[in-house]
Amino acid sequence: MFQGIRISGFGGQGIISSGVLLAYAGMLDGKHVSFFPSYGAEMRGGTANCSVVISSDDVTTPVVSQPDTVIVMNEPSLAKFEPFLKPGGLMIINESLVKSRPQRKDIKVVLVACNKIADELKAPKIANMVALGAFCKQTGALSIEAVAKAMPKVFKRAKPEILELNIQALKRGAGLN
């Protein structure tokens, strides 16, 4: 099992924390993992992206050059990462914010209204968790339970009710409720 993932969006959308959460969940699940942030001079509103590898084997390079999955959280990220996605790869698109669609026909596209669902949960900041829920469902690389278990380890200062809200968002992303 091998999943090379790129998550990309605006600074402030929780791109980096989503990546750390995936890596942590993979580790708790007994997988080999790595996380690498693109740490340019980004700030809130700038662009941010990260590489995550979840693998049953040793992780070689942490920089994912040909991702199996790309999670596109904002408009500019689509054009940036579409060319690099592996043939047959998965593109999860936050359709609440991304209006264009990929040109490639050799990839699988899943549209998720991340911001809309997060707004319905009255927590606009957790659109990233909706996307992770969709990732879990589509790839089977990680279970929702594994990601939920990693949450208190990564979001150490979060109150229980906030963690619960994040889990709700994961489930909504996975289409579970």
Binding site: A23, H32, F36, V63
Partner: peptide
């Protein structure tokens, strides 16, 4: 280097 410094791994 910056990659090893910034990356996370178990």
């Amino acid at each position: 280097d910056g990659v090893l410094g910034q990356m996370m791994e178990p």
